[in-house]
Design a protein around this nucleic acid. Structure first.
Length: 445
RNA sequence: CGGGCUAUAGCGCAGUCUGGUAGCGCGUCCGUCUGGGGGACGGGAGGUCGUAGGUUCGAAUCCUGCUAGCCCGACCA
C-alpha cells in the first residue's frame, strides 16, 4: 500500500479523552474513532489488525476441531426468559423493543442461542463431541466505559460452546480450549497467563482467565514468577490425545497464578518469597466448564448408549478480540509509538523514501515494493512528499516492526537501511538483501 | 449509580472571573526554497463558541434547564 493512497489519519497531538497509552496510541495512529462512549469505528489500519487477530483465532480453533458459525446480534428475549437470565442479567444487557413491541436484546453472549440450535438438531450421543464457536460483535452496556477498546460497550469477541456427553468429555473440551488459547496468544506475540478465576454471571465450576501482564491492567494478579517462564512454543499437539491436553493444562496451571477474586494468601505465602509477584493484568480470555446449567434449563438432551435422555455437559470459552488490540499495545510500545509483534502487524514492513521525487530513490523504492509484494508480503510505502523526520515519526507511531529506509546517500553506495522498530538496530545492505531478510523473518514466523 | 470536571476551527488550548470586532499552536490548502528524525518564508480556507430558553441596548462570557464526553469510586470481558 502506498501511503498517499491509503487512509491513515494520524494525530500529532493526543486527544484529551484518552488516558491510557493504548487508547492514546490507537487514536494517534488513526486506528479507531470514537462514535460514542465505549463505541468505536475501526479505521483501515485498526480494522486490518482486528482481521489479523480474527484469522489467527479461526486457524487455531479449527485446528483444535472446533466449528465456526455465526449467530445474530439481536436476539429474542424469549430464549433468555427460558434460561432465567433475562431478569438475572441486569442493566448491562441492552434491551430493545421492535416495532411489534416485542422484547429483543443486543447479545452480550450466546449460551441461550447456541443451546437452542443444539437442541433443535442434535439428539444422539453419536453426534458428540461438538464445539461451535463464532467471532461476533457483542454489547454490554457498561456503566462506565473507559480505556478505549479495552473496556468498550460494543466489543468483538470469539465465543465458543462445547457440548459433550459426560463431564470427562467436557473437561477434555475445556483442556482443548486452554491449549488452543495458549497457542493463539503466543502467535499474537503475547504472554497470556491462565489464572484460576471466578465464574461471574455465566456461572460454573471450573474456570480460568487468561491475563496479559500490564501496568494498566484492571485486575490485580498474584503469581509465582516461574509461571512467566512457561512457553508453549512450536510443540506438536494432538487435540484428540486427552492425556497430552491434560498434561499441558497441568503444566500451565500448577504454579500459583490467581486474580484478586480467587487469591489465597496462605497458598501464595507458601511460594518462596523471591518468586512471589504481585502485578496487574488485562483479561483477554476466559474458559468455563459449567456442566448442565443451560442444558437442563433449556432441555438440551441427547440419547446415550442406553437410550436414556441425558442433559449434555457444556462449557463456554471466550477471547476478547477487540480488547486484545489494546492489550497488545499496552504490552508492546515505547515513547514513540506502537511496536507490533510480527504476527499481528498491519503491514509487514514500512518503506521510507527519504527524497520523494529523486529519480533514483523513487525507482529503488518501487523496486523494493514490487519485490516484497511478489513474495506475498504487504509493505506500507511512505511516498508522501514529506521530510525525513515526519516520515520516521509516522513509522515509529504506527509501529511496523521493520523499516527499509531508502535515500540518495545510501543508494550511491548501493545500500538501503533495514531497521528493527523494537531494538532500533539498523544495518546497511543492498536492497535485494533487505527484501530477502524481511521475507525470511516472516517465513520463520 | 454516587462524587468531581469539561464542552470555543480537524487536534491541543487561551478568552469566561470583570458582558462590547472570536484568538494562538499544530494540522490542512497554494507558492517558493529545502531534503537522513515533525525545516523556513509568503499567502489562503476553516468556528450560528454543545443545545434550548432567560437577563441585557448588547452574551463564548451572567442565570436556568437539557444533552454529550472525561476522571475517581462501586461494577465489569
Amino acid at each position: 500500500m502506498r501511503l498517499t493512497r491509503y487512509f491513515l489519519p494520524v494525530l500529532k497531538e493526543t486527544p484529551a479523552e484518552a488516558q491510557i497509552v493504548s487508547h492514546r496510541l490507537m487514536l494517534r495512529a488513526g486506528m479507531i474513532k470514537q462514535a460514542s462512549a465505549g463505541i468505536y469505528s475501526w479505521l483501515p489500519m485498526g480494522f486490518k489488525v482486528l482481521r489479523k487477530l480474527e484469522n489467527i483465532i479461526h486457524q487455531e480453533q479449527i485446528r483444535a476441531g472446533h466449528i465456526p458459525i455465526q449467530m445474530p446480534i439481536i436476539q429474542s428475549a424469549d430464549l433468555w426468559r427460558e434460561s432465567g437470565r433475562y431478569d438475572a442479567y441486569g442493566a448491562e444487557m441492552l434491551r430493545i423493543k421492535d416495532r411489534h413491541d416485542r422484547d429483543v436484546l443486543f447479545t452480550p453472549t450466546a449460551e441461550e442461542l447456541v443451546t437452542d440450535i443444539f437442541r433443535s438438531h442434535v439428539g444422539s450421543y453419536k453426534d458428540l463431541p461438538l464445539t461451535l464457536y463464532q467471532i461476533q460483535w457483542k454489547f454490554r452496556d457498561e456503566v462506565r466505559p473507559r480505556f478505549g477498546v479495552m473496556r468498550g460497550r460494543e466489543f468483538y469477541m470469539k465465543d465458543g460452546y462445547n457440548f459433550d456427553l459426560t463431564k470427562e468429555d467436557a473437561l477434555h473440551a475445556y483442556n482443548r480450549h486452554l491449549v488452543s488459547y495458549l497457542r493463539t496468544y503466543e502467535r499474537m506475540g503475547l504472554q497470556a497467563i491462565p489464572m484460576r478465576a471466578d465464574s461471574g454471571p455465566i456461572g460454573g465450576d471450573d474456570t480460568h482467565e487468561f491475563l496479559v501482564l500490564a501496568e494498566t491492567g484492571e485486575s490485580e494478579v498474584f503469581y509465582d514468577s516461574q509461571v512467566t517462564d512457561l512457553t508453549f512454543g512450536d510443540r506438536d499437539i494432538d487435540y484428540d490425545d486427552r492425556a497430552q491436553c491434560q498434561a499441558v493444562l497441568d503444566e500451565f496451571t500448577s504454579l500459583y497464578a490467581r486474580t484478586d477474586e480467587t487469591h489465597d494468601e496462605a497458598l501464595f505465602n507458601a511460594i518462596p518469597a523471591d518468586r512471589r509477584r504481585v502485578a496487574r493484568g488485562i483479561e483477554v480470555g476466559q474458559i468455563f466448564y459449567f456442566g448442565t446449567k443451560y442444558s437442563e434449563s433449556m432441555g438440551a438432551t441427547v440419547a446415550d448408549a442406553q437410550g436414556n435422555n441425558v442433559p449434555v455437559h457444556m462449557g463456554s470459552h471466550g477471547i476478547g478480540v477487540s480488547r486484545l488490540i489494546g492489550a497488545i499495545i499496552e504490552a508492546s510500545h515505547d515513547e514513540n509509538g506502537i511496536i507490533w509483534p510480527e504476527g499481528v502487524t498491519p503491514f509487514h514492513c514500512g518503506i521510507v523514501n527519504l527524497k520523494q521525487g529523486d529519480a533514483e530513490a523513487d525507482a529503488a523504492c518501487d523496486a523494493i515494493y514490487k519485490s516484497l509484494t511478489a513474495l506475498g508480503l504487504e509493505p506500507l510505502y511512505d511516498d508522501r512528499n514529506e521530510r525525513a523526520g515526519g516520515k520516521f515519526a509516522t513509522m515509529d507511531l504506527i509501529g511496523l516492526p521493520w523499516r527499509i529506509t531508502v535515500g540518495p546517500r545510501g543508494l550511491k553506495n548501493g545500500v538501503v537501511e533495514l531497521t528493527s522498530r523494537r531494538t532500533g538496530e539498523s544495518q546497511e545492505l543492498p536492497p535485494e538483501q533487505a527484501v530477502a531478510k524481511i521475507h525470511e523473518i516472516y517465513q520463520n514466523l
